[in-house]
Write a protein that binds this DNA or RNA. Structure first.
Lengths: 211, 211
DNA sequence: GTCTATAGATTGATAGAC
DNA sequence: GTCTATCAATCTATAGAC
């Protein structure tokens, strides 16, 4: 028996290659070659290339969403106990911190986060939809919680600002460690923990800004 | 003679299809078919599929960058005359307003803005680099101007916040008119002019937040 | 479960007539 | 400049032996 089974090796290889080259630019041959598996193994274990992508998303996103949902509900329950509105930063932290921290939990998770960050703007609906279906309920929960935290912001404006937030977050997830734009003076890049704080500060300021 | 020449029709078709389906998912056959041109015309006029993409970027991005550069320099010159530091919102407006307004200038521009918004997180370096090469100098100018506007923010932090800004802006450019995530209550989406104001407010609040 | 072999379709690019 | 015809490579998916 091999160290990890074929199905897992294929998932790992697909996760890595989908993240670094994109879904359409990655062939099943490249995946099975890196996974040291046979070409036909993908269709045997998953059924199709699209179903493989779905499996890649589900493997890590379902547990991650569970964590984010628990932290979100905990923030809401804390506020309820103190009979106050939840704080924006607490809600954002429940959503952002596990996501970026997840990146460091294991080697493949780094690729996964890149993949998710890119999925939001993915052109192919097949790819995008199989991702959005997994996250839409959680986003709706976050939106509902933010309306409690920021009742003075009209819902339509809050919704638009949440889109900006997702954009900043998605871009960050794609780009950690690979600066897209070179600045002449490149200071020390922030650590992952610092990045979480910087991002929360940035988007909470944007969300809370008076209209 | 046709209404518009073949080269322009190919550029228009490529712009539209690259934006809606992505670069790798768009075949030269689909482009020439929509442009009512012959398959061989792409290689005759542009040399290769990659060179066609480069031409699509350059056609609109060079004039747009010229406008943004002029508005940026004008904001800096106004501040210099009044012997004050430039205001963050003025710098952001010079950068953001022409970009989003450009979307409405002509039919194809809408597709182009989608394409640019996605280019920042494009996996294929061939695609991404031919875009970043066109915008990096302008981004560096914006960064330098923001350091004048926000001297109290450490340069490293300001650079990270500018990345968040690019993320929010790129996501917005991709997603206008095509909401990626459905919210149960969908209020009236903001007009283009309102969106500019909302985005400037959001990112300026994030950039200016005390550390 | 894993393999070989291959079907069936599509791709970017080019040669050469007109 | 525009066209037809085609090359050579690549792709996903599957059939069938072991």
């Amino acid at each position: 028996m091999s160290q990890t089974d074929t199905k897992t090796r294929i998932l790992d290889a697909a996760e890595h290659l989908f993240a670094s080259d994109g879904f359409h630019s990655t062939s099943l041959r490249a995946i099975t070659s890196q996974a040291q598996a046979n070409l036909a193994a993908v269709n045997y274990h998953f059924g199709s290339k699209g179903a493989l992508l779905q499996a890649v998303f589900e493997r890590r996103l379902l547990p991650l969403n569970q964590i984010r949902r628990e932290l979100l509900e905990q923030a809401l329950s804390n506020a309820r106990q103190q009979n106050t509105a939840p704080r924006t930063v607490d809600l954002l932290r429940a959503f952002i911190e596990p996501t970026l921290a997840f990146r460091q939990s294991e080697p493949g998770a780094r690729d996964f986060i890149t993949l998710v960050g890119r999925a939001l703007v993915e052109p192919d609906p097949t790819v995008r939809d199989c991702f959005t279906a997994l996250v839409t309920p959680l986003f709706q929960q976050l939106m509902a919680a933010l309306r409690l935290a920021l009742p003075q912001i009209p819902p339509g404006i809050l919704q638009t600002r949440l889109q900006f937030t997702l954009g900043a977050m998605g871009h960050t997830m794609c780009m950690i460690g690979r600066p897209p734009l070179q600045f002449p003076d490149a200071p020390q890049p922030p650590s992952s923990a610092e990045l979480v704080e910087l991002l929360i500060r940035f988007v909470s300021s944007g969300l809370e800004a008076p209209c």
